[in-house]
């Protein structure tokens, strides 16, 4: 089970990274979104897998009486999902505004902060 998910996770990572290596900002964004899922899945898998037993304590008991899924990675992933969504939403709007202002969705054309062919800094004192 973990092995199968480890394989799926590596495909998620590979696809996300391949998309992020592109020069098109929209592809990079798709990559970021998938990357978040890849990370979440690997945290989840690293905490070991357990089928169909959610970490909930029965009404009558103080502690669960049978084996349950590991709650800790679930709590971590829950936080991570929300954060990665915020990041994705922010990047999406940023990309859109950058496209509006700069007229391109190619990262090679987005050179406002690091312009191409910058002259030598002054050689005086």
């Amino acid at each position: 089970m973990e092995a199968a998910l480890a394989f799926v996770v590596s495909v998620f990572f590979a696809v996300a990274i391949y998309l992020m290596l592109s020069k098109h900002i929209i592809r990079i964004l798709l990559g970021v979104s998938i990357f978040g899922n890849a990370v979440n899945l690997s945290i989840f898998t690293a905490g070991r897998l357990m089928r169909e037993v959610p970490p909930i304590i029965p009404e009558a008991l103080q502690t669960p009486d049978s084996a349950i899924a590991n709650p800790l990675p679930q709590a971590l992933v829950l936080t991570a999902i929300v954060i990665s969504f915020s990041l994705f939403a922010f990047l999406l709007v940023l990309a859109f505004r950058a496209y509006q202002e700069l007229g391109t969705d190619d990262t090679d054309g987005m050179r406002v902060a690091e312009p191409e062919g910058e002259p030598l800094p002054p050689l005086g004192y």
Binding site: V9, V11, F13, Y18, R48, L72
Partner: peptide, 27 residues
């Protein structure tokens, strides 16, 4: 090549992690 290597590396690391004994103290 870069994406494949990187993905494989992270997958292998995850696989290795799941093959060591699990410390469930915190959980």
């Amino acid at each position: 090549a870069v994406a494949g290597t990187c993905g494989a590396a992270l997958g292998l690391m995850l696989l290795r992690v799941t093959q060591v004994p699990f410390n469930s103290e915190l959980s």
